[in-house]
Design a protein around this nucleic acid. Structure first.
Length: 431
RNA sequence: UCCGGUGUAGCUCAAUCGGCAGAGCGGGUGGCUGUUAACCACUAGGUUGUAGGUUCGAGUCCUACCACCGGAGCCA
């Protein structure tokens, strides 16, 4: 009786009679020989069918089997240098679970729009498969990092009563007899969590209704957001660089095969070790001025500015102390230079831009109230948030890391849309 | 929202000055016992994004619209 195996373990079953359940990835034939490339989600193996080994009608059926037909192959695993992966299946029996209709995605080239229209099928392709395996590894590593440090997962709500940051456009939705907004950050809720649990994080989707139309933007994306009580900016940066190093090391260790499929230059990832450079905003501004970039001191950095700065280093760069006016209301001002905020942005190398934004939060009740007023935010909606400064306020800090941008960087992709299973952009809500 | 670009067979793209609508892949049929995006032969496949306009004649020129791509701003 053949034992059922997954393709990933095929090399452990050489000379065994096995059964593999999967889908037809590709096919070729030569006279009395048929080569079936089978994938099962764990890997790809070649099944070889000799006409004389198998009933005539099954041979004929396999000859005309469309791509992505679902099948169960039974046969012996043999080592063979001619096969990719070093082993192949000598097929003795084929059970066709379903003969597929003509499959739209051929192994040849396709355009982005066509592939995105077929995203539900495109996920089966080896490159997309590799990206999403790495995405999973990154998410798991990030969670393990915080879990191992004693953080508690405290999930933030998706429906929120008002803007978290006020500046950006929100998705509005009907919520019974009132309006609700889809969250654009879990951070304010994490501040409440940090005061209850000390060290917390959330991991969930966030929504931005801005009509951004670049390779770095989605309308729906995922963030992991830690928040720590009794924590200052420097400790916050220690936490952030530790996490990024941990994630990269984990991907290099567990996802070599996927990085190879993506033809990622891993030597660049191997350089991602602590400490990461830390630059004051003024130092970063100097780099831009020396590079004669079209940049005005006091402004936030644009995408091109970020690339100029990050290209000076082969590690992620942390830029601190942005002018307070370009940052959100909850950022704490630096006591030594009050027009600068105790904040940090981490820029990924190779021009991938900002992957982390964070900093120390305003913990003084009166200053916070003034800032809410200055930003024209509805004080009523922030009543609970203000409460946190009334009942045992402490210095605290945190950050948010964008999962998709991190995946794009680690995978070496030039567009963020392939880093999430079903991307949402201003022009795409399907599939 | 602004700037630039693209839209032709199922897919990726050609089509010269405005003059017969084409190729490769994929599909179908046949051949081949070691293929890796196989190969060889034959074959089917078109409302040229939509609506107008100019012209003897429009895939090609003009106008509007639609869809998408790239970039800017905003941000993770």
């Amino acid at each position: 009786m053949a034992t059922k195996i997954y393709i990933t373990s095929a090399l452990e079953h050489v000379e065994d009679e096995v059964k593999i359940s999967g889908w037809l990835y590709n096919k070729t034939h030569k006279g009395k020989l048929i080569f079936l490339m089978i994938r099962d989600g764990t890997g790809i193996i070649q099944g070889v069918i000799f006409k004389n080994d198998i009933p005539e009608d099954i041979f004929e059926k396999c000859l005309h089997l469309p791509q992505e037909s679902s099948l169960e192959l039974t046969g012996k695993v043999v080592a063979d240098k001619r096969a990719k992966g070093g082993a192949e299946l000598q097929v003795k029996d084929v059970k066709i679970v379903q003969e597929a209709q003509e499959y739209p995605i051929s192994p040849k080239e396709h355009g982005v729009d066509f592939l995105m229209d077929h995203r539900h099928l495109w996920l089966r392709s080896s490159k997309q498969h590799a990206i999403l395996k790495i995405r999973h590894e990154i998410i798991k590593a990030a969670r393990d990092y915080f879990d191992d440090l004693g953080f508690t997962l405290v999930d933030a709500p998706i429906f929120t009563p008002a803007a978290c940051e006020g500046t950006t456009t929100l998705f509005e939705t009907d919520y019974f007899d009132q309006k609700a907004y889809l969250t654009q950050s879990g951070q304010l809720y994490m501040e409440a969590g940090a005061m209850a649990f000390g060290k917390v994080y959330c991991f969930g989707p966030t929504f931005r209704a801005e009509k951004s139309k670049t390779r770095r933007h989605l309308t729906e994306f995922w963030m992991i957001e830690p928040e720590v009580a009794y924590c200052d900016l420097n400790q916050d940066m220690d936490l952030a660089e530790g996490m990024v190093e941990f994630i990269v090391r984990r991907v290099l260790k567990n996802r070599q095969q996927e990085l190879e499929i993506l033809e990622r230059d891993v030597s660049l990832l191997e350089k991602i070790v602590r400490p990461f450079p830390r630059l004051h905003y003024n130092e970063a501004a100097k780099i831009l001025q020396d590079a004669k970039a079209d940049f005005v001191y006091g402004d936030d950095f644009g995408g091109g500015d970020e690339t100029i700065i990050s290209n000076k280093f082969d590690k992620p760069v942390m830029i601190t102390h942005y002018p307070a006016q370009v940052k959100a209301f909850y950022m704490k001002a630096d006591p030594e230079q009050p027009d600068h905020a105790l904040c940090v942005d981490m820029l990924a190398p190779e021009g991938y831009g900002e992957i982390i934004g964070g900093g120390q939060r305003e913990d003084d009740l009166d200053i916070l109230l003034k800032k809410i007023k200055a930003h024209n935010l509805p004080e009523e909606a922030f009543k609970w948030y203000i409460d946190l400064r009334k009942y045992g306020s402490v210095p605290h800090a945190g950050f948010g890391m964008g999962i998709e941008r991190t995946v794009a960087w680690i995978c070496g992709l030039n567009h963020i849309r392939e880093t999430i299973p079903f991307p949402r952009t201003i022009y795409r809500l399907y599939p």
